[in-house]
Structures are given as C-alpha cells and as structure tokens.
C-alpha cells in the first residue's frame, strides 16, 4: 500500500467549501472546449459537419482552443488529483482514464491531425474521426466512473 507524508487537510480543495466544485467546473468547461473543438473537426471528417469549410481549415482554426482547453483541463485535473492522490492512484477507472488521455493526446496530434490536414475524405478519414470520438468519450466516461467503482 502506498503512503504519502502529506496532510490532505492542508489542501484548500479539502478545506474550502467552494474550491473543489469550482475546480470541477473549470475541469468540465475546459474539456468542453478541448473535446468540443476536436469534435467539430471530427464531424467534418465524418462528412456531416460544416459544408463549406474543410477539416484541414478547422484543425488550424480550432487548434489554439483545443490546446488551451487541454492545458486547463490537465491543470485542474492535477489539482483534483492532489485532493486525494492515494484514492485516485488505486482507482481502476482513473488508471484507465490516464492511459486513454495519453493515447487521446498522442492520437490527436499525430494520426488525427495528419489525416485531417491531408484533406482526404475517404473511409480512412471517417474511421479516424470515429476513433477520435470514441477515445474522448471513453475518457469522459472513465472520469465519471472514478466516483462509482
């Protein structure tokens, strides 16, 4: 069993009534930004999104918002993690979430980006978009299931 020499009550997230829910709100709003902007690109790659704009254009224009969202979501996530590290460390859903998040970020900036920028509208593009949506939705599910398993 892992132990930490760390007073959890010294963490404002555990002592201030407003801190924890507020951090969660930032976390949720930020993943709406990051996942939402990726989803805008994805629906375009699926062929059911913006008609007059290409996925390549969307990747370039939403990139900064995806990145900002990811920075805030990871920062607030680290803060939430600090409120009870041991609990999260041993939580299977949390562990899955971290691997999926890593996979999601790598996927987004490699395969997903490359295919979106290529302007390819074949089946490959549809598959890449579908996988992207699946990964990000699974991360959201895993995040919520931390509280349920």
């Amino acid at each position: 069993m892992l132990h930490l020499i760390y007073d959890l009550n010294a963490n404002p997230l555990n002592s201030n009534e407003w801190a924890f829910p507020l951090t969660e709100c930032f976390h949720i709003a930020a993943f709406a930004f990051s996942v939402g902007t990726i989803a805008v690109v994805d629906v375009n790659m699926l062929g059911i999104g913006l008609r007059k704009t290409t996925a390549a254009q969307l990747v370039k224009d939403t990139g900064i918002w995806t990145l900002l969202g990811l920075i805030v979501v990871i920062t607030s996530g680290l803060a939430i993690f600090s409120s009870d590290p041991i609990h999260y460390y041993y939580n299977k859903s949390f562990r899955f979430k971290m691997f999926a998040l890593l996979a999601g970020i790598v996927y987004n900036y490699t395969i997903h980006r490359k295919v979106a920028l290529s302007g390819n509208s074949s089946g490959a593009s549809v598959a890449v978009a579908a996988v992207s949506i699946l990964i990000w939705v699974s991360i959201v599910f895993a995040g919520l299931f931390i509280a349920f398993i």
Partner: peptide, 14 residues
Amino acid sequence: HLACIALFGGMILM
C-alpha cells in the same frame, strides 16, 4: 450526460 457537454456543449461554446 457529461459526454454530451464535451461533444455538443463544446460546439455551443465554439
């Protein structure tokens, strides 16, 4: 419910 915030809520924000 939460995944909808991510996918579609994000579209509203954009």
